[in-house]
Design a protein around this nucleic acid. Structure first.
Lengths: 348, 348
DNA sequence: GTGAAAGCGCTAACAG
DNA sequence: CTGTTAGCGCTTTCAC
């Protein structure tokens, strides 16, 4: 089957042999430790090329304890928010010469511990979502690996994470959205939340706080998944009831887009009858019709920032669990742009 | 800096020492080679727990040459098509106990070779896009690693890839779409292609072939990137000219969604004035307004199938470069339904 | 400057 | 069944 003699990748020893030097010399030349006799170095490099030698990264890691790669664990790669985080991190990883290893949990946190356990021993550091269970979040520390967490800040004083983190103020994000909607004169806001998220309470509290000042009301509805399907599925129930909502804020843009589609199919005019908004500012949110108002949760910066922070931790050993804050940005689009005092309420 | 005594992870030797046996015994117990004296095994397992020992995967790989993980290289993780491929592969990877390592090239193929070189030596096999340059595609073979390629079939007889592949008939996909559109009576079809893709020619040829039979015309336009932005940007130029197109097929759903948005903003009625369709059937294509007709390119099956095929290659050593074909599926939605609204065709 | 040799942590013959 | 031992490929003191 396989021609062993020609297929077996050349090793350091092969190179050393071919060049008539010791393996140590070759290794040092490769790692540029000293200045070598030009003649010698040339001979070695020649052998390297001739044998098509490349370093075996596993053996190297084994000897040095370093890997040149960092691990990024996301909850669901299909969520564009996470996809953008990956992208942001990937760019910075390339800049700093790391190999980014992405692992997708597929929203199933039950195997997180084992996954992390294994991953942690193949990388120089980890980037994790704050939404992971505590035990998973702390695992890298136990293994002595630096980690950086990313995600939303809880407004309520929460136990500070043990690792450095890049956070974005979830409360502020909800405030931006709520303020915008109540200023537009809407009085009956529905929040479509995702019950499994720890940030739900924060959001709803922010909206309620604002509603009080605006003489408006807020109700909460839950979807079982943060998907477009789930958003669409809940559409009918939001308008065929007596509550007569005139504005809806969704857990994220995916839910909002699904809901938007569902409402339009039911003949609801957005934003005139009902305003809709989401969170994350995923790329497609601009391209649905009407385009979706949202809060930019800085996905790419979250990923890029995490990588940068981790890089510093690895380089300088600075593992202080400081929090770096990113500001959410309101992105107003057509789905919440209606005439003030326009007739509110669902048709039919 | 680091407290070595408490931080250093326990090794096999530590466990063996604590249990009063040899490292070989512990290793074999861990890998379930034989049946051991229950008493002995219990003692060893106790020590493992007591010391919180876990295997070092790097050392293990070093000794065995196995990694328990497979590498998946995608061109652009932000493209939902690829995201779904990752997802499909990730599910199967979990099923078979592999660790999926995802690497995003960010559409920059120039560093592909180096990336692959490194990745190939850390995994048991690779899954690669057919769109990678030849030299990158063949690299795993040179390193003696099994690989599986995924992507579209070229209609023109092309050099068969050296590795097994899961392909989907691009020509057929275009035929499905073209037939549907010409049967609806459209005569002036614009194909918005992505020039950097090797599949462009195939698509346009398929459409032209059909057009002949239908007494219709086809023109080709190119966008520089396969993004929604690019699709939107080209909108005006497609209608403010004398060609009076009445149907547009885009390189993929992202371009189509951007274009759709752009056209709607310009007051074009879709599908009545112009029909629009894309390729891929990305999740959001169902949720734009009007929902988008597309061809399902079986992203998830592409990823899942590749993983399965690779698994077989690893297990049974069957590296025969066979081609496994997937059938594209036409998904008709509102954007090409001139007569009546609603959705025909089976999404997923 | 350069080479010899001792590991890194684990597995896999081979003995016993 | 269980222990001894020789590596896997590379890095890194430590002498020469």
């Amino acid at each position: 089957m396989r021609d062993a003699s020609s297929k077996r990748p050349a090793t350091l020893k092969d190179v050393a042999l071919a060049a008539g030097v010791s393996t140590a010399t070759v290794s040092m030349i490769l790692n540029r430790r000293y200045q070598f006799k030009p003649e010698l170095e040339a001979r070695v490099r020649e052998a390297i090329v001739a044998l098509n030698y490349r370093q075996n990264p596993v053996a190297r890691s084994m000897a040095t304890g370093l890997f040149g790669s960092i691990g990024l664990v996301v909850l669901d790669i299909r969520n564009p928010h996470f996809t953008n985080i990956v992208h942001g991190a990937s760019i910075k990883a390339q800049e700093h010469g790391y190999n980014l290893i992405v692992v997708d949990l597929k929203e199933d946190v039950s195997h997180a511990r084992q996954t992390l356990d294994d991953l942690a021993r193949r990388v120089d550091g980890l980037i994790l979502s704050l939404r992971l269970p505590q035990e998973a979040r702390d695992l890298p520390l136990q293994l002595g690996k630096p980690a950086v967490l990313f995600g939303q800040t809880l407004h309520e004083p929460a136990p500070a994470p043990l690792s450095p983190s890049i956070q974005i103020r979830g409360w502020e994000a909800a405030m931006l959205l709520g303020r915008h909607i109540f200023e537009a004169g809407r009085k009956r806001l529905t929040y479509v939340g995702y019950s499994r998220s720890i940030w739900n309470a924060d959001r709803i509290n922010a909206l309620r706080t604002l509603a009080e000042g605006a003489g408006a009301e807020v109700r909460e509805v839950s979807v079982a998944a943060q998907t477009m399907e789930a958003g669409e599925a809940v559409a009918a129930s939001l308008i065929y009831d007596a509550w007569r909502t005139d504005a809806i804020v969704c857990y994220n843009d995916m839910v909002a887009i699904g809901l938007l589609h569902g409402l339009c199919a039911l003949g609801v005019r957005v934003p005139d009858d009902i305003m809709i908004a989401g969170f994350d500012n995923i790329p497609v949110s601009r391209y649905v019709t009407p385009s979706l108002t949202t809060v930019d949760m800085r996905s790419e910066d979250l990923g890029g920032g995490s990588l940068e922070r981790l890089h510093r931790a690895i380089q300088s050993g600075d593992h202080s669990p400081g929090v770096e804050l990113l500001e959410p940005r309101l992105v107003v689009r057509a789905s919440t742009l209606a005439q003030r005092g326009g007739e509110a309420g669902a048709p039919r």
